[in-house]
């Protein structure tokens, strides 16, 4: 009934909630992504990572999403009519983040240089993609 992200345990039911919300907004959000030549996250992101690193990478990703994506696209989600699944994702990400927070506080996190570099590369690529799509958005007159 549980899923293990590294040493941290998350109920399967929360993942079910996440899946439902993702599937409810997937078409709308992906239809807006015209930058099909960039795929930021892949399975390889966690390859060769220790359990503690998987925990830590998940924590960093969730925190990054909550602080940068959900934070900035709340109004856009309402305009697109996907606010409900959007909020479900955000609040359930927050639940998982808090669970992983316990692991962080118990010093279970550790990031190798390789994983640290991977996450920084992800952040850099994300910013690049974001600026590019924001630029296109501006060109189209917003």
């Amino acid at each position: 009934q549980e899923v293990h992200i590294g040493h941290c345990r998350v109920q399967r039911a929360i993942l079910q909630e996440l899946w439902r919300a993702f599937q409810a907004m997937k078409s709308t959000v992906q239809a807006l992504d015209h930058n099909t030549e960039t795929r930021l996250l892949r399975q390889e992101f966690f390859q060769n990572a220790t359990w503690a690193e998987i925990c830590c990478l998940n924590y960093s990703l969730l925190d990054f999403y909550l602080s940068n994506i959900f934070n900035n696209y709340h109004t856009k989600a309402a305009e697109l009519g996907i606010l409900r699944p959007f909020i479900t994702l955000a609040n359930n990400f927050f639940v998982v983040l808090k669970k992983l927070q316990h692991c962080k506080e118990r010093g279970m996190f550790s990031l190798s240089e390789n994983s640290e570099r991977k996450f920084q590369l992800f952040q850099k690529e994300f910013t690049k993609v974001c600026l590019k799509s924001w630029g296109v958005w501006e060109l189209k007159g917003g």
């Binding site: 909550l66 959900f70 934070n71 709340h74 606010l83 909020i87 955000a90 609040n91 990400f93 927050f94």
Partner: peptide, 14 residues
């Protein structure tokens, strides 16, 4: 408001 809204975007009510 959920906990996310209060923690990250305290202005948002849905």
């Amino acid at each position: 408001q959920g906990e996310y809204e209060r923690y990250y975007t305290s202005s948002h009510w849905i």
